Amino acid sequence: MNASRDQFDEAMGQHAEVLARLEELETLRSREKEAAEAQREALDAQLLVEREAHEAEKAAREMLEAELEEVKSRAARDAERLKLEGKKEFLKSPEFYTLLGKKAGGFFKNDFLGCVAQWRANGYPEEEHPASFLNVQHAIAEMPDEEEAQEEEEDEDEEEGGVGSEATPPSSPLS
């Protein structure tokens, strides 16, 4: 019986050691589980922060893209406005009138020579009916100057004596 008792005591001691070891393992396991849970929560929080940062970057990028589009459209409008202003200024410049005069002179000369060539081709007898206007230099010299034409128009308007809708009514003595 003593031997059984010793074996029982020894088995109980081993059992107590196994239980203690089991408790240690369970404690260690719960600690590891808690650590894993804490790590998982930290990773979830980090993931949430990174998602929020990504969304903020995405919103900032979209806002910058919208601002860029607005700046591009404003720049295009300004460029078009400046182009129109430059065109208007050029149309008022003496350089434009010089170019216009050169073009008009070229057209006049070419059209004039074309008309003269058609008259000659159709048998216009220059000997019988000399026409001084067939000479280009003479025709240009005979053309009225723009200032003279404007003066003539003004003279004609003055001769009409204010007849029509352009006449200004006499001012009243009360005003």
Rank of each mutant, 00 (worst) to 15 (best):
M1W: 03
L99V: 09
A56Y: 09
H129F: 12
L64C: 04
A76S: 09
A45E: 13
A59S: 12
K102D: 11
K87N: 15
E153L: 09
E50H: 01
E57G: 04
E34F: 09
A60D: 13
L19E: 15
H54T: 02
E159L: 05
L22P: 00
Q118P: 05
L47Q: 11
E159M: 04
G13M: 00
L25D: 13
E37R: 06
E62M: 06
S132F: 08
P144V: 08
L82M: 11
E67D: 11
A131Y: 14
Q118V: 08
D9Q: 14
S172V: 04
D111F: 00
L174D: 14
S175G: 09
N2T: 08
T27G: 04
E32R: 02
A76V: 05
H138V: 08
R51G: 01
E166H: 12
A45N: 14
A139C: 06
A131L: 11
L48P: 00
F8D: 13
E159T: 09
K92A: 12
P169T: 09
Q7S: 14
R29T: 06
L113D: 06
A149M: 14
E37A: 15
V18H: 10
A66R: 06
Q137P: 00
E156V: 04
A139I: 02
A42F: 07
G105K: 03
E65S: 14
T27P: 00
L25R: 12
K103I: 11
